[in-house]
């Protein structure tokens, strides 16, 4: 704006601080902002979502569903940061599910274990073997590769609930982000699933059930979740090993 037109967009400044060079185009607002402002607004927006929606009450025990993937890793980090910074007074836990798929969870469980050390969050791993007496590998052996996603999805949902019950938590926080929710909305329209369509955008679900779930990342875009760890110091990067170094990622091709 300070220059003529947009041709010199490289020389534009961050639209928040107006001082530094922008490093990111926000997918939500198309604002161009610098690294420093990015992580301030990123965390602050999540804080606002938590406060405005009364997601948590002081003294609550909260389990964070931790898969070792990007969303839950960033969620665990941001939650523990905000809890400290804004005195939420929350008792935070990490909760992981081990499906027993060879080569699939082994690495990501390593990541989660590192997170446990890094943020000082206690970790509870629930295995399919413990819960159901079967590992996913054994299920696949029985029913073949075709429909096992259905099993895994249903089992995983239950496993998180059972694990949360074991930990006696008040609420379960999951890493579902804005992109996930948009995808779910479309899928439910295409399927004609009116019941799910009407509840899939709620930030808190299952309030009538034993353990309510909430999505602090409801308004957070996937792109920013992936970029967020990159804008941090190398020390913290270590714990976001799904991006670099250790291979903590769930291979996206599985």
């Amino acid at each position: 704006m300070e220059m003529e037109g947009g041709e010199k967009s490289r020389s534009r400044l961050c639209s928040i601080c107006n001082q530094r060079r922008p490093a990111l185009k926000r997918p939500k607002t198309l604002q161009q902002i610098c690294r420093e402002c990015f992580y301030v607004v990123f965390e602050e927006e999540i804080h606002r979502v938590i406060v405005d929606n009364n997601l948590f009450k002081p003294g609550e025990r909260i389990a964070i569903g931790a898969s070792g993937g990007k969303d839950s890793t960033v969620l665990a980090y941001v939650m523990s940061e905000l809890n400290r910074r804004h005195n939420y007074g929350l008792d935070l836990f990490l909760l992981s599910v081990d499906e027993g798929i060879t080569g699939y969870r082994d690495d990501s469980l390593e990541t989660v274990k590192r997170n446990e050390l890094q943020y000082g969050l206690p970790l509870k791993v629930v295995s399919y073997k413990d819960l159901y007496g079967w590992t996913m590998d054994e299920i696949v052996k029985m029913i073949g590769l075709k429909n096992n996603c259905t099993f895994c999805g249903v089992f995983r949902r239950q496993a998180l609930d059972r694990g949360a019950a074991l930990l006696k938590v008040d609420k379960l926080a999951t890493g579902h982000n804005a992109d996930d929710i948009a995808e779910t909305v479309l899928l439910n329209i295409l399927r004609g699933d009116i019941a799910r369509l009407s509840r899939c955008t709620s930030i808190i679900t299952g309030e009538d059930g034993p353990i309510p779930r909430c999505k602090p990342f409801k308004y957070t875009y996937e792109k920013e979740i992936v970029i967020y760890p990159l804008s941090y110091t190398p020390l913290i990067l270590l714990s976001f090993s799904f991006l670099f170094g250790f291979d903590g990622t769930l291979p996206f091709i599985y």
Binding site: N188, I189, L190, R191, G192, D193, I194, L197
Partner: peptide, 19 residues
């Protein structure tokens, strides 16, 4: 593309929105 793969998809979408 959806309609080519599943011939009743358009109707489902309209029916959903019809609610």
């Amino acid at each position: 593309i959806l309609q080519e793969e599943n011939p009743s998809r358009e109707c489902t979408i309209v029916r959903t929105a019809g609610k």
